[in-house]
Simulated scan of single mutants.
Amino acid sequence: MENKTEEIQEQEKDTGEETEKKPVSKLILLIVVVLIVGIVGGTLGTFIGNKLSDKPHAKQTEHISGKISEEQASIPLDEFLVNLSQDKNGEDSYIKIQLSLLVPAKVGEKEVEKNKDVIRDSVVNTLRKKEATSILEDTKGIETLKTDLKEEINQANSSSLVKEVFITNLVIQ
């Protein structure tokens, strides 16, 4: 009798272990299925989102690239580091700036290379007359600076070589 009781208890233990294994295996299976569905859904969502959002960006790029025509060229100049005029407080300020000049394509490029020193001199002289506050605090400060630079460069070359000045980097300290 004791053997039968022990056998029944062992069978109950075995069936108890099996019932505990079934929920654990179902839980693991559920986690795996949720992960797979999440990964597939995220991948599809990203792919579809990128396809839909690429079309407007292509149109914007075409519109922006139309700023400089085939008959014009943008010529980058070397970096300038110049002392600005002292502020009313008597503080010294410096400007570090990189410029590009918009000129007629073939003739303009040669003229800029030929007159590079004259152009750099006119840029330095123009910048030395400016105060940091007039460039930064005025709402039209940057636009005024661009216009002044264009006029000074053209006056120094005795021509209307430069059509526009682009500021590609600007730091004032």
Results as ranks from 00 to 15, higher is better:
residue 78 D to P: 01
residue 105 A to S: 14
residue 89 N to K: 14
residue 135 I to K: 02
residue 112 V to Y: 06
residue 120 R to E: 15
residue 87 D to I: 01
residue 119 I to M: 06
residue 93 S to P: 00
residue 119 I to E: 02
residue 86 Q to G: 00
residue 78 D to M: 06
residue 94 Y to M: 06
residue 123 V to C: 04
residue 138 D to M: 09
residue 140 K to Y: 11
residue 139 T to A: 09
residue 139 T to S: 11
residue 107 V to Y: 13
residue 98 Q to V: 07
residue 110 K to G: 02
residue 78 D to N: 13
residue 132 A to Q: 08
residue 79 E to D: 11
residue 104 P to Y: 11
residue 136 L to P: 03
residue 100 S to M: 10
residue 120 R to Y: 08
residue 141 G to Q: 04
residue 142 I to Y: 14
residue 100 S to K: 14
residue 104 P to G: 09
residue 81 L to A: 14
residue 134 S to Y: 07
residue 75 I to T: 09
residue 110 K to R: 11
residue 113 E to D: 14
residue 73 A to Q: 06
residue 133 T to P: 00
residue 103 V to W: 06
residue 130 K to F: 07
residue 129 K to V: 09
residue 78 D to Q: 11
residue 129 K to F: 06
residue 130 K to V: 07
residue 96 K to Q: 13
residue 87 D to P: 01
residue 97 I to S: 02
residue 137 E to K: 14
residue 114 K to T: 14
residue 125 N to A: 12
residue 139 T to G: 01
residue 116 K to W: 05
residue 73 A to P: 00
residue 75 I to Q: 11
residue 129 K to P: 03
residue 121 D to P: 01
residue 120 R to V: 06
residue 110 K to Q: 14
residue 131 E to T: 11
residue 113 E to Q: 13
residue 134 S to V: 05
residue 129 K to W: 03
residue 83 N to A: 13
residue 138 D to C: 05
residue 140 K to G: 12
residue 138 D to E: 13
residue 102 L to M: 12
residue 80 F to Q: 04
